[in-house]
């Protein structure tokens, strides 16, 4: 996943052309515990970098999902709304949250790559 970037808020974004797929990291789902509820943005909505785009909740915690970059929402993953537990099973693959069309690919610079993120998480423990 060389086109995958990470944020300090524990989101990942996988970029293919001008489309980015966004989810939360395995570390994040583990910290949350059993996910019971997911709220996704409306299709077509414009989201700004580092602002709230979705919500993910466990029994005892509620967490905003911030968009790693700015863009327009082009797809959302209804499967995780129907079955929030998928987020615990496959946070970094099939349990993605939304796809957006990047407004400015330059915003990707400054995000972490896999190695940097792993190091970042290690520093939190």
């Amino acid at each position: 996943m060389s086109n995958t970037y990470f944020t300090t808020e524990h989101e990942w974004i996988d970029v293919d052309g001008d489309i980015g797929t966004v989810g939360i990291t395995d570390h994040a789902q583990h910290a949350l515990g059993d996910v019971v509820f997911v709220e996704l943005p409306a299709l077509g909505k414009r989201v700004a970098k580092a602002t709230e785009a979705a919500v993910v909740e466990s029994v005892k915690a509620a967490s905003e999902v911030f968009s790693p970059v700015s863009g327009d929402i082009v797809a959302v993953n209804d499967a995780i709304v129907e079955q929030p537990g998928l987020v615990n099973e496959a946070a970094e693959t099939t349990a993605w949250f939304f796809k957006l069309r990047l407004a400015d690919p330059a915003e990707l610079t400054g995000l972490m790559d896999r190695a940097a993120y792993d190091e970042f998480v290690k520093g939190l423990e």
């Binding site: 909740e57 005892k60 915690a61």
Partner: peptide
């Protein structure tokens, strides 16, 4: 409970 003040 995530609606409530002790969490949110």
């Amino acid at each position: 409970s995530t609606r409530e003040q002790h969490i949110r």
